[in-house]
Every structure is written in structure tokens, then in C-alpha cells.
Amino acid sequence: MSGILSPQAWEKVWTFRGTFLLGLGNTIQVALLGLLLAFILGIIFGLMATGENKVLKVISRVYVELIQNTPLLLQLCFLYYAFAFSSHSLGILVSGMISLGVYHGAYIAEVVRAGIEAVPKGQFEAARSQGFSYVQRMFYIILPQSIKIILPPLVNQVVNMIKNTSCLYLIGGSDLISLTYSFVTGENTGGAYAPAYILSGVLFFCICFPLSTLASVWENSLKKRERRVVVQKKTALEGRV
């Protein structure tokens, strides 16, 4: 009944395909909302990390270190159970969205910081010498240049977030992994382990693979362009000698 080759098991999975699609829908929903939060936090804290204000720098650092050095599961459980037992329950989806957003926000903040720091110092100075304010400098001059550097690792964060929705299982979520698990352990539906996890995996793969491919294509074209610039500079230098 549970074997990969068992037709009945595959049939059962097919009959309950709606469950898997529902789980996929929930996973994407949490991931999208979490992503929105992560982007906002990532940009704000990334800017704080590269700004001139030392207090904001420290705050950003503390946030990033705190989040990156504790497990996502702990953050999720803390948020969910802390609120659930203080009679202000946030609900599973909201807890999931917030903790995924805060967790990946810390990684995106690092990505944004690295992207801004990769822009040559002269660009900041030219903008300052023209009298652009901090926000104008970032908006018109620096961020449009860092976006190319930021995008590939950012897409990787999106992929990680989609996979990390599986943590919702621990607080009783209805994401793809959780529903797959209840399916294979359910009284009426149980048993079809292999086909169920294969289907679940295929669904994850279908979403994540195109994204991570996009990221690596992006990264390679960026590297190629850099190499071209270096070659140009080198030949220009050799021309001078």
C-alpha cells in the first residue's frame, strides 16, 4: 500500500490532490506576505547599517545578529505561543508570516548592506558634493546601482522563505508540508507515504527551481559584465605604459 510503485497509493494521492493544492496555496500566501515584511525590514535595516548614525547602526547590527544566531523554529514558537497564552492569539498564518518576515528580513538587510557597500565611495561623494540629501542620494544614485548586486541573493532568500514555510508545521499550520504530513498520517487517508512526499516535493521544486535558476543566471551575467569591465580597464592601463 505504501510503496512507490503501488497504484492504489498513487490513486489515493490523486483523489486528495485538492489537499496538496490547498497546502501549496497556503505556503505561497504565507511566503508572499512574509516576503513583503522581509523586504520592508531588510531595506530599512540595510540602510540603517550603511548610514552615518551610529545608534541606528548598532540597532541594525543587534537585530541581524539576534535573528541570524537563533533558530527560526524558536522565533516562531516564541511568537506563536507567547501570544497564544497571553490571550492575544495572533493565529497561525499571522504568526508564520511575521516570524518568517522578521527572520528573512535580517538576511535581506545583510544583502542590502553588501549591495550598498559595493557601490564605489566616489558615487556617494559626488552625490554629496552636489547637495543631495541622504534619502535623495540613496534613491536616485546608490540604490539603482546596488539593485543589480542585490537581486541574485535576494531571489535566493525568496526560495529559502518558501522552503521555510514548512516550519509552520510546528504550530499546527496548514502549509504544504503540514498538510502532507496530516495526509499520510490521517485515519482515512494514511499510508501513501512515498507518493505523497514525492508530490509535495515536486510542487516545492516547481516553484523554487525556476527562481533559483533565475538567480544563478542573473549572477553569471553580472560576473561576465564585471569581467568585461576589468578587461577594459586592464587594456586601458596597458595602453598607458
Binding site: P120, G122, A126, I141
Partner: peptide, 9 residues
């Protein structure tokens, strides 16, 4: 200001 490294955008 005009810079040594031009610093055009």
C-alpha cells in the same frame, strides 16, 4: 566639485 575619478553616475 570635480573629482580625480570623475564619479559620473
Amino acid at each position: 566639485m570635480v573629482f580625480q575619478q570623475f564619479n559620473l553616475y
